[in-house]
Design a protein around this nucleic acid. Structure first.
Lengths: 224, 224
DNA sequence: ACCTGAACACCGTTCAAGT
DNA sequence: ACCTGAACACCGTTCAAGT
């Protein structure tokens, strides 16, 4: 019969690393990497800037945790046979970085973080299932992971540009225009390719690269 | 017969973009990315911080110019047949980033810079010489460039770690130790691979990845 | 144990003033 | 035209002080 029970709502939101990371992700997604400051984060969490340091060592740990959070979720639902599994992992990462460009930058900044290890493990394990020779597995896994991260970082950077200047097809057209300005004598290949850029599908091209690597791995395996 | 000609030595070193970029490269190489500030740069050039802005728009342009400077030199001396030329370009970039880790980070940050275009052109042109079908050239070139940049960024990050903690083999051993601590049930592949890490050769592994891609490109070409 | 918020040291960048 | 250096706005991080 206590009428004045815990009417104070008990701030269900006592600060925690998890809540901090979630708020950081919201800021990163909505306003980009530059907008994530401890002051902005503290304001959003309605606390002092210093409070965050009780739960998180520094900004680097915050970004690492945010990246692990995103990638960790992805890695759960990659399925299918070994080859398709590798494609699924790759596409999962690609789409995650499309949705959260800052993840791409962070992955290539901090190679020892858990997210990287998960990617490496899930690719490597599937290569084993694919029957790749023991001695070749490490190199093959590295190649796939390097490729995935390289594409990820590039896409993150391009997304950053698009964020600044309009939509995707507009910014592709802008890039094509810049390419066309390069000296044709010095850059013949780029000139030949530039017109195809606006119609070009990042995601399909990314997958094509994965398939090239898988084809190379298969070719080496059968001794071609 | 003017005795007091220009005895003032005429500071042969009037500020210029080129001198600024060179000084920036020296700081980046010697003390890392964090050490490059406009104040440090001004001090080294014996001028005011603001003077630099007369020659360079901002820090981003400075890093872009420094990166273009390094990569531009590399691209001149890649030689050999088309396949070997691609390997030479790749190894040139790898070694450049080994010597200047900050280049690796910068390349994946600014994909539209001249250095990237040169890499793309020199890889793409050689694919054409290799006889890769028109429609497959763009994807193949992208795959190679993504891979090269991904490996570059990872190596840059690892070099940053080594710079902090001792030499390369020591830091590889450190990484192997961290890998061994991961849960073996969740990370069986990493556990199998960890012991091979200390004896492992970054550069050879990087080249192995290039060869996988070239093998894949060849396989697709002959329709396998 | 956890939070507050002022303070510190340090940035990139600008700009009035000099030559 | 080019340089100087103080000033501005803004960081990450620390820490004495509170509850």
């Amino acid at each position: 019969m206590t009428k004045k029970t815990q009417r104070t709502e008990r701030r269900s939101d006592a600060l925690s690393k998890e809540r901090i990371v979630e708020a950081a992700i919201e800021i990163l997604d909505a306003e980009g990497e530059n907008a994530l400051t401890f002051r902005a984060l503290a304001a959003r969490l309605a606390t002092g800037a210093g409070a965050i340091y009780w739960h998180v060592a520094d900004k680097s740990e915050l970004l690492t945790a945010a990246t692990d959070h995103i990638i960790g979720r992805i890695m759960l639902d990659a399925d299918g046979g070994p080859e398709d599994g590798i494609r699924a992992v790759a596409i999962g990462i690609f789409d995650a970085i499309d949705a959260h460009p800052w993840v791409g930058a962070q992955l290539s900044r901090e190679p020892q973080q858990l997210a990287m290890m998960q990617i490496f493990e899930s690719v490597g394990g599937r290569l084993q299932a694919l029957g790749v020779a023991e001695g070749a597995q490490f190199d093959a896994a590295s190649a796939l992971v390097y490729y995935i991260l390289g594409a990820a970082a590039q896409n993150a950077a391009n997304a950053r540009l698009s964020l600044a200047g309009g939509d995707r097809s507009a910014s592709l057209a802008g890039i094509a225009a810049r390419w066309a300005q390069l000296d044709p004598a010095r850059f013949p290949f780029i000139h030949k390719v530039a017109p195809h850029l606006p119609e070009h599908d990042d995601r399909a091209q990314f997958l094509a690269g994965i398939d090239l690597l898988l084809a190379g791995i298969a070719a080496v395996q059968r001794g071609t």
